[in-house]
Amino acid sequence: MAAGGDHGSPDSYRSPLASRYASPEMCFVFSDRYKFRTWRQLWLWLAEAEQTLGLPITDEQIQEMKSNLENIDFKMAAEEEKRLRHDVMAHVHTFGHCCPKAAGIIHLGATSCYVGDNTDLIILRNALDLLLPKLARVISRLADFAKERASLPTLGFTHFQPAQLTTVGKRCCLWIQDLCMDLQNLKRVRDDLRFRGVKGTTGTQASFLQLFEGDDHKVEQLDKMVTEKAGFKRAFIITGQTYTRKVDIEVLSVLASLGASVHKICTDIRLLANLKEMEEPFEKQQIGSSAMPYKRNPMRSERCCSLARHLMTLVMDPLQTASVQWFERTLDDSANRRICLAEAFLTADTILNTLQNISEGLVVYPKVIERRIRQELPFMATENIIMAMVKAGGSRQDCHEKIRVLSQQAASVVKQEGGDNDLIERIQVDAYFSPIHSQLDHLLDPSSFTGRASQQVQRFLEEEVYPLLKPYESVMKVKAELCL
């Protein structure tokens, strides 16, 4: 049975990233139509530049190519590739079939990587351009969430054990800070992308030097003109047959890092959902379990974690691919890159769409948070109580021993009897502590235990987050809708 299948058929496997999760716009960027249309555009740009620099290419040939950029006979191309065992030459023939007058000058002087690699770089750039505003929107939604809850005390956790208090907004800023680093890295790697350009079979530009009869300047002009037509500021000066596969490492490393950030955020949300302090959106008709109707599973956060793990592992592909590119190139890269580049971007696209949807509907339960604080705060307040007693004339050592005994009794009630923490009640009825009984409410005010959390939130948002989001103001209103 021949390899390949009808990918629109229910009898043929289709990647869930495309069929179930990723956005239509990201799927289109990695589609065959987008790819092969870009090949034709690159052939047109090459012909236009070659004509401008004096090669015998007519206006009629150029116009014929322009008129057929979208006229792609995919069936013919597939048949040609089956016959020739070469995808680029299959599309040269297919393009030439609908451009008979231009057929002889299509791909003039070029090698397969002229269309293959340059198209990949265009796709990487455009895919990054799709991700950047999506990530900015996630940051914006979380920034709104953090600002609104900047002063809401909550129990902090280290080692997932109760620690000092923080605020809900401050905790959210930990998430935002990681995503801001990801946004900066995505922008950097996007701006650092260079075009492969017009380089020939081993990167020496020998074929173009021959076409222009040894004119170095025209060869350099050709490279520059096509690079500018493709919208790049610069091209690699040095290439082998391909652009260095280190570029793929750079791009997928940034995406993998984004995956790590999203995994951490969504894990926190899942843990908070278990504590009943916070939940992701839950639709009115949504079913959490087929057997347990009360369940409210954090399905979206779980999906993000599941896909983020996949995204983090994909960076190993370009690392290994770059390491086995012998001399000017081997074909070890080809099949692998067809999979890992598309999957990385479709996965990143999915987790950003999902995280935006989550961040637009996060639900906080202040009463649950308050109750958990009441359970733990008495123990945390013991040092403040000791200091207040010393100020009232008591002995630190005597007070410490009193607190120690009462704390152990209260802990026994919590752990052995399943009761509430009654340390404060014990202190309130103990005559030894009568000098500070009137101060206990103040000493137990949760806001006095959150330090500068709310001020940190305000400063972080104003100095770091809002300036970073400013270039994306025009796209901030787009909502994230999930079908599944």
Rank of each mutant, 00 (worst) to 15 (best):
K479L: 04
R404I: 06
R337S: 01
R452L: 10
D117S: 01
A381L: 09
R188Y: 00
K264T: 04
Q184Y: 11
K187G: 12
F460R: 03
L443S: 08
D11K: 08
S306G: 07
N185I: 03
K229M: 10
F160S: 06
I436T: 05
T204Y: 00
D191Y: 08
S474P: 15
A235M: 14
L46H: 02
N185Q: 10
A260S: 15
V198H: 03
G394T: 05
I358C: 15
P153A: 08
E417G: 10
E148I: 11
C340G: 08
S306P: 03
P100V: 10
D332S: 05
Y466W: 14
P471E: 14
E383Q: 05
R459I: 11
A308K: 03
M26C: 04
L468S: 15
K101H: 10
N185L: 06
V457L: 04
P162C: 07
F145E: 10
A344Q: 04
R372Q: 04
T204G: 14
K391N: 13
E280H: 01
T330I: 04
T321V: 09
A78E: 13
R188S: 04
P471K: 15
P24I: 14
F212T: 05
A2H: 15
E383S: 04
D87C: 00
H107T: 02
Q455E: 13
V247P: 00
E370S: 09
G104W: 07
I351D: 03
T38I: 13
E383A: 02
F232G: 04
L53I: 14
K479A: 15
P435S: 09
D398G: 13
Q285W: 13
D11E: 09
A235I: 07
A136L: 12
A291Y: 00
K75L: 09
C27Q: 07
L155F: 03
R270D: 05
Q184R: 10
G394A: 13
E283R: 09
S412Q: 14
K233V: 11
P471D: 15
M292G: 03
V168E: 02
F282Y: 12
R329Q: 06
R83Q: 11
M380V: 05
E81P: 02
R188D: 08
P293H: 09
D87E: 11
D178M: 01
Q416W: 11
V413G: 11
G104M: 14
V478W: 15
L307E: 03
L482G: 05
L44F: 05
Y114K: 00
A230P: 01
R171D: 02
H217V: 13
N71A: 08
M225A: 11
C173D: 05
H97F: 14
T111G: 04
R196N: 09
F36I: 15
C98S: 12
E64I: 07
D144Q: 14
